[in-house]
Design a protein around this nucleic acid. Structure first.
Lengths: 147, 147
DNA sequence: TTACGACTTAAAGTCGACTTTAAGGCAAGG
DNA sequence: CCTTGCCTTAAAGTCGACTTTAAGTCGTAA
């Protein structure tokens, strides 16, 4: 009775069924029990998915989430696991913030100081300053829909 | 004489030749003059690429860069173009910063307050709080090498 | 019996910004 | 004449997190 189908689970956690199949495929959800070929879940999968969603919300990749579940010695507690991964992620986010700030400063300065008529003129200025400074570790900020 | 080959240009601006071909293909660089089938450039392409690199560094996508060059009435000055795009980008970056802060707060709180033994226990807690709050507009922070 | 709805799988498609690969061209030097 | 080195093109591959598609299966209700 408390056996849920994949789309019932999906609805409860706000995911598409395909996402749940994908999670199983890449090994962050254990293969579900099948009945007549179809997946059946009990409530524990909701907790598992809650952890996954929480981790996604805080910026973890699916690889990191796999690490959360399987990258520790058996005896490690949940809070120990979160500690280690969170510390790392906080450092990443701090670096990301720093890079965003750099962008903001550059944009501000350009808005204030650029009085160029043409983009070629503008480029001439940028080129002379040896603009190729920070290039090495810039990062792209890709948006995602989330649905 | 002051005609540059594609890899000379690439070296000067810190790009791969393939990136320059790609820029031509998607229309943010105009097709170059050919000599014996090969692209030849003069110094003006360096300015153009300097603008492109500057824009990339400040978080613009290639679509936005195309807009910078071609999305304005002919008479618009460079500084007007930068103003409009920069204003928009600054707003985006501010939103991004806000989302990062949300992640940081969540991570901090979890590091301080989670004393769970097991991840299932942890998920039970998250699940009960109706965790599916902000899901709608989260974004992923994908890194890129930059080389 | 047949239609329906919900499920299954494997494979391919999506997005952005490129890179890599395969197959070939062209000019200069030995 | 042939090799070397740099160039050309079109097409396919990469990464991450999925979604979409195509073709098929299962149980139930009419």
């Amino acid at each position: 009775m408390s056996q849920l189908t994949i789309s019932q689970v999906a609805r409860q956690v706000g995911l598409q069924p395909s996402a749940i199949r994908y999670y199983e495929q890449i090994g962050i959800l254990l293969p579900a029990q099948r009945i007549g070929g179809q997946r059946r879940y009990d409530a524990s999968v909701l907790h598992r998915l809650a952890v996954i969603q929480q981790a996604r919300q805080t910026g973890f990749t699916l690889d990191e989430i796999r690490e959360l579940f399987f990258g520790f010695r058996e005896a490690a507690t949940a809070s120990q696991r979160w500690q280690r991964l969170s510390r790392r992620k906080l450092a990443e986010l701090a670096e990301l913030t720093a890079q965003i700030k750099t962008m903001q400063r550059l944009l501000q300065k350009m808005m204030e100081c650029c009085h160029c008529e043409t983009l070629d003129q503008c480029g001439k200025g940028i080129f002379k300053k040896g603009f190729a400074e920070v290039r090495a570790k810039s990062l792209s900020l890709n948006r995602r829909t989330g649905r």
